[in-house]
């Protein structure tokens, strides 16, 4: 199909879709006038039932914990897909290129930011079920701390900081740990992913029962997944900038 015909066909279809969407939007409750019962019940019940002051975390890791397991496994599968696609053609590792950042100011700022970002990420994960945050958000911040080492330091120090076997171990432990916590509940005769631990008092770090464990498992999984992604794409770049090897 020619480009022009495709755009024309899209134009007609998009007009129809836009009309249908607008028609359906007028049937929705007005913005801010929310009728869903589920969310309202959870806002009242979750802090009391699960002793978790962050209701979003209670939904992610408890009420919809099984769904989150599916999301984690999608994440795992996508990262494995990237590793399989990009690793196979690179038979041997390219020699690590020398590309240190030469500006002292940039290096000093970057390295101090990397430390601060690491602490921020850990804090966001650790308090995920008490205040805004959680394993998913904190995990991305933690991975960004490692990326800062590459941006402000050198590719060589980034690679030394994130050895592939350890990152892969973290990725597997995060994804597998979530499932194992669910299976532990089965072992003692409860439903899959049912809470195992005492709930504690809302607002404390020791609150929420199994939620902190699942939170840390997903934090580890997300951090390792993103570091692995950065590793794969940066190795690809290392092959491209190495003058002795031309991409086939």
């Amino acid at each position: 199909m020619s480009r022009r015909a495709r755009l024309a066909l899209f134009g007609i279809a998009a007009c129809g879709l836009a009309a249908l969407l607008l028609w359906s939007i007028t049937g929705l409750p007005k913005f801010g006038d929310y009728h869903g019962a589920y969310g309202k019940i959870l806002d009242k019940a979750a802090p009391r039932e699960r002793q978790t002051s962050n209701v979003v975390a209670a939904v992610v890791f408890d009420y919809r914990g099984f769904d989150t397991m599916g999301e984690e496994l999608i994440l795992f599968a996508a990262v494995m897909g990237v590793a399989m696609l990009l690793r196979e053609p690179r038979e041997e590792e390219a020699p690590v290129p020398e590309d240190p950042v030469r500006s002292d100011a940039l290096r000093a700022c970057g390295v101090s930011f990397a430390g601060a970002t690491l602490v921020l990420g850990l804090w966001i994960v650790a308090h995920g079920y008490v205040t805004p945050g959680g394993g998913f958000q904190g995990g991305v911040i933690l991975a960004a701390a490692f990326l800062l080492v590459w941006l402000a330091g050198s590719y060589r120090s980034y690679r030394r900081l994130t050895p592939v076997p350890i990152v892969e171990l973290g990725e597997g432990t995060g994804a597998g740990g979530y499932v194992v916590i669910g299976l532990c509940a089965l072992l003692i005769g409860d439903a899959f992913l049912q809470n195992l631990l005492p709930y504690g008092v809302a607002g404390k770090l020791s609150s929420g029962g199994s939620i902190p464990l699942l939170n840390w498992a997903s934090g580890l999984e997300v951090t390792a997944a993103f570091v692995l992604l950065f590793n794969e794409f940066l190795s690809e770049r290392a092959v491209l900038i190495d003058p002795t090897r031309r991409p086939s």
Partner: peptide, 19 residues
Amino acid sequence: AVDPVVQALTLTDIVVSVT
């Protein structure tokens, strides 16, 4: 307070969409 369920859906969706 606003609905926590849709927020939880959005949050997992963002991370997965990036990967």
